[in-house]
Write a protein that binds this DNA or RNA. Structure first.
Lengths: 337, 337
DNA sequence: GCGCCTCACTTAAACGTTTTCGTAATTTAG
DNA sequence: CTAAATTACGAAAACGTTTAAGTGAGGCGC
């Protein structure tokens, strides 16, 4: 391993001068700097991040909290896309990213311990159980943190426009003539709360009746649950003409349920998803859904995090909204009655 | 930041003793060790990986080469699943994982430079252009490397059973009565080569005619290309009765082409995918495909890599085969003629 | 000629560990 | 009872950086 010391010996200068030359400090003569840089290249020198980190207390490495939710983890297209955006933006700004886990050197540890050990400059919280005590401990520490699709008091967040999204879907169905719209929502989370609130508001606003039966607890990315809830909805005396699902993937279960119930889709019942993942746009008929700008969410999160790391005092704490757009497919048709 | 030094002062012992106590060395009296550990916990001590790394030349951190292929990156379900397996296995063995990129501290660098800078103990090469000069440079360095679905001379690899996979698909179609089977394959890669070779071998073996027209160059994960090639295949005078696609996702384009050509699927033409990703099993009709065990590939890669790191001399260089299985759907039916 | 800058470089300490070697005290062997 | 071995600890160097402080040489104004 070639170090500053070796370069110094070869060049006949001190280690300090080599360090300054390579870091572009001003108090090194131009020709000396060039000579040192040339030699460093020749020797194949590469700095040692550990030594630098030890000295400067900066790692240029971001931790990412991304935990396997219900066995899906990285396979979840929406979150994977967010992470991809985060990764790309971080790389373009000179930061690496490392996953944070609860295991450290074969023993279990808290997220915070993991972060302290690795010396992350900041943490992006993308996909995790936000109520987990270990997450709270991390958030309450003095490590810069940015969350995606969740707000913590005193920390910046990047949020998808859940309110606008659901409102757009309801409005779209309404304009297509639907007056009986059901909503199968996901588990109780920050996101679900916003969407549900928006659903109710929009229904009130449009003077739609929303019997309790029309609002069902489903699960994100679980087609089977959507299947069951859909069958149940279809058996109601006054059944809905349109159903909104937690997301595009779990929606598939709904479509299967409709067909298994002997109904035609979309002629007999209209359907809408959420997310706008690839599958929704290659299905036949194409699905009407609200596409979240997942990549932008990730990029914005990384950008905000890095900004707050590099300008600790001037950087303001804020919630950034990233808007998506309605993708119009052919899954919603004018109801018969 | 609480360091060994502080603990030493509080406990009235030397730094060396504290280090040894916390690392479980034998030359520390039991009661001293307990006392030191207790104090360390009380003070909220957490080791500093940078210092440890500097001293020991071990990071307990693995680099992962996972580059955005054609704009998909992490969104590619197969690779995402491999990565998830890699991540889980690494974590369970006490290793973190960090993405390797070509940008380092805002300047561009080679993969190898990145690895040297971060001091990775080893590298998993999962999704990348294997012919890239920077990849070769990394592989030829003295950093332990394990590849997924590609073999490099002198390095361990974890391989999906591409030969068995394609053979199983061809055989399945044959047994269903198909004698004219076309194969739209992906770009020229190690994997494609194996599959093509297996396709030809199997066809010969079964005495199937495979005119050049039946073997088409397509692209992985590109439904549009599959669409075009499928239309072209359907216009042949003696058209195939069954088509195998590069993967389940690009296959969707094929299905659309069949329908747009006025044919019925699967009645008029049978179709098979590859990978066994989620979408293939929720579609109607379900797709007959060969499911790769992506999670196992990732886990095996991490396990092998860590083994070769921890036992540099006893660990043997090998190619590990991970087998998948045929998923029988309803996309292949007995041909009319 | 004197004081004062500036320039270009060096010295040396420090970051938090690990580990080798040394040593004093205690135990064991003969 | 002496010598050797063992036990439990400490001193110090080292890993590769960064950076504050110091130094000597040369140039400048007056």
């Amino acid at each position: 391993m070639v170090s500053l010391k070796m370069i110094a010996e070869v060049c006949g200068v001190s280690v300090a001068t080599v360090s300054k030359a390579l870091n572009g400090h001003k108090d090194v003569k131009d020709e000396t700097r060039e000579m040192i840089r040339r030699k460093a290249d020749e020797l194949g020198y590469m700095a040692n991040s550990a030594a630098r980190m030890l000295k400067t207390n900066r790692s240029h490495n971001l931790g990412v909290l991304f935990e396997d939710q219900g066995g899906r983890g990285l396979t979840h297209e929406f979150f994977a896309t967010v992470l991809e955006g985060f990764k790309v933006e971080a790389a373009s700004r000179g930061y690496d990213i490392t996953f944070i886990s609860k295991s450290l050197l074969n023993r279990s540890s808290s997220y915070l311990q993991h972060c302290k050990y690795r010396g992350f400059d900041g943490v992006g919280i993308i996909c995790v159980k936000f109520r987990d005590a270990d997450v709270l401990e991390l958030v309450e520490s003095d490590i810069p943190v940015v969350t995606v699709d969740h707000e913590f008091e005193g920390h910046s967040a990047v949020l998808s426009d859940n309110i606008t999204g659901i409102a757009a879907l309801v409005k779209y169905a309404y304009e297509k003539g639907h007056r009986k719209i059901a909503y199968i929502h996901g588990e109780e989370t920050y996101v679900t709360e916003k969407r549900l609130q928006s659903f109710r508001t929009m229904c009130n606003c449009l003077e739609l009746l929303t019997p309790n039966d029309y609002i069902r607890q489903g699960m994100y990315y679980e087609p089977d649950v959507s299947y069951r809830e859909t069958l149940s909805l279809l058996q109601l005396e006054d059944r809905p003409t349109c159903i909104i699902y937690p997301d595009d993937f779990s929606m598939i279960g709904g479509i299967n349920a409709v067909r298994d119930a002997g109904l035609r889709f979309p002629e007999d019942i209209s359907i809408m998803g959420y997310d706008g993942i690839d599958i929704s746009q290659v299905m036949n008929p194409r699905i009407t859904t609200y596409q979240q700008n997942a990549g932008a969410l990730g990029r914005a999160a990384a950008a905000k995090l890095i900004e707050s790391i590099e300008n600790p005092e001037s950087s303001i704490c804020e919630s950034i909204n990233v808007s998506g757009r309605l993708l119009e497919g052919a899954s919603v048709v004018r109801p018969c009655i």
